Each structure stands twice: as structure tokens, then as C-alpha cells.
Amino acid sequence: MDEETPHIHIDFVPFIRNSKRGLDTRVSLKGALAEQGFKGGTRSATEWNQWIESEKQELSKVAERYGVRWKQLGTHNKHLSVLDFEKQERAKEVAKLEKVVSNNKAELSHIIYQQVLAENEMEKIRQENEAVRQETTELSATNDLLREQADGLIENREKLMSDNKALEQQQKKLQQDIEKMADSKVALERNVHAYDEDARWQLPEPTALMSAKTYREKNAMPLVERLKEIVKSLTIKCVNLMEQIKQLKAKVTKQAEDIDFYKSKVHQQYVKLEQLQEKADDFERVKQYVGVDKIDIIVTNARELERIAQSEKQQSRAYGMGR
């Protein structure tokens, strides 16, 4: 049903017979109701109201026979004309529509609010993605740089190890030279003892009747000359040995300093390698968090952008030179 209070409209024509005035049969509501036993009483219990109440009771009985019960609300709405009734119904419809519009406005406001929140969240996610992309690009560039530095450090380390090995060999050779010098010293001491025992280096006793001049010329002077030659030779050798010892000591000191320097460089490069390894581990963590595929895409895009920028820079430079 399309009505809040279902009702029916009854069209009838009240009339009476045996009228004492006018026609024998004529229209008369009051007379027709009086013939049915409805007579006026109080102001509210008129014939018309009595008849309406009687008809309601009869309709209620008919409805009960068909299983329909009359729910009496105790209200009495004034009968309206068709125009007023339609106005009333339109007013109800307008009220419903206004309520629907109000609900729709509230829902639309909620949707707009949710849309704004979603846009803000999307912007936040976009900014986070951009930050991650930039950080990943920087980490990728840093990783490439770290790889280059690591390769360079490995080469330097190998070179330092090679130089250190060469220094150790030189130090070993110097040690051998020092040992040879020590052997020479032992040989020299042995030769000195030989001078004490060898007859060539002994001044013989003068023979009988040998004059001092003859002894000097034949025995003393030749021995002195030989001794002078030996002293000269030993002096030259001693000076040479002292110079060699001085040079060897300088070389040993220099090589010791070089060894300490290279050891320090090796230690510094070892520390730097550890730092590079730590950064490489951080980059691996980022790859695991973001995803290898995304990292590869970001790195590829970053390299492509760098390539395009480099190409544009070269073209701009070529254009400037052409002008």
C-alpha cells in the first residue's frame, strides 16, 4: 500500500420515500439516516457521525472474516481535498527527499574526507617511495664507488705486499752482506794473527859483523815498505767497509721505515675495507627490504638518467663549440 493509513471512499446518494414535502422520493441525508435509526443527539453524536461509526464496525466485522484486524489508533484526520491531499503527500515526499539529500550530503562529505585522507596517504607513500628511490640511487652509486675503491685497495694491498716482500728480500740481502762483513772481520783477525806468526813479517836478528846500514837496507826497510803497503791496503779496505756499513745501516733504517709505513698503509686499507664491507652490507639490507627487482629497476632508471644527462651535456658542449 502507498498510504500510511489505509482507507476507502464510498460514493452514495441518500434519499427518502413518502416525503411529505415536495416529491415523494427525494434526496435527504438526514431523512435517510433517520430511516436507518440514526437520530441526532449531542453535538458530536450527530446522525452522520453515528452512521460513520456504524459503518466502521460493519467493515471491521467483514475484515475479521478475512483475517484482517483493525488497529484503532484513536486518531481522526480531517478529510482533505484531492489537491490538499496531493500537497500533503508531496510535502512528505519532499521531506523524505530532503532527508535522503541530507544523508547523501553527509555521506558525500565523508567520502570527500576519506578521499582527502587517501590522497594525503598516497602523497605520503609517493614521497616515501621517492625518498627510498633517492636513497637507493645514492646507495647504488655509493656501492659502485665502494666496489671501485675496494678494487683499488685490493690492488694497492697487493702492490704493498709485493713491495713489502721485496723489502724483506733486500733486508735479507743486507743481512747476508753484514754476515759477509763479519766473516771478513774474522778473516782479517785471522790474518792479523798470521802477521804475528809468519816469518815474512818478522824482523830477523842481525848476523855477525852486519852493519846497521846494511841491516837497515836489507832487512828493516823492506819490512817497513811491506808493512806500509799492508797498512795502506787495510786503511782503504777499512774506509770502504765503514762506508759500506754506513750505507747498509742507512738502507736498513730506510727499509725499516718503509716497512712500518707499508704496514700502516695496509692497516689503514684493512680498516677502510671493513668500512666498505659494512656499507656493502647496509646496501644488501636495503635490497632485501625493498626487493631485488625494485632495486634493479631503480638502478637501471638512475643509470639511464645519468646517461641521458651525460649525453645532453655532451651535445650542449658540442653545440657551444660549433657556435
Rank of each mutant, 00 (worst) to 15 (best):
K71A: 10
A91F: 10
E93R: 14
D84V: 12
A95I: 07
Q115T: 07
G67A: 01
Q72F: 06
H110E: 15
K99W: 08
S81E: 03
K96H: 07
T75N: 00
H76V: 12
Q88R: 13
K105H: 00
L108E: 00
G67S: 01
I112K: 15
W70V: 14
E121A: 13
N120V: 04
V82D: 07
G74P: 04
L83I: 07
Y113R: 10
F85E: 14
V116K: 14
V101F: 07
Q115M: 02
G67P: 05
V101Y: 08
E98K: 15
R65W: 02
R90L: 15
N77A: 11
E98W: 02
M122H: 09
K71I: 12
Q88L: 07
L80Y: 06
R69K: 14
V68R: 12
Y66G: 04
S109I: 10
K71H: 12
N103G: 11
R90S: 05
Q72H: 11
K99E: 11
K96Y: 03
A106H: 00
K92R: 15
R65A: 11
M122L: 10
I111E: 09
L117F: 00
V101S: 05
E119W: 02
N77S: 08
N77D: 13
K105Y: 04
S102N: 03
R69N: 08
S109T: 14
R90P: 02
A106C: 02
Q115R: 08
V101I: 15
H110V: 07
Q72N: 12
Q114L: 14
L108D: 00
S102D: 07
R90K: 15
V100H: 09
L108N: 01
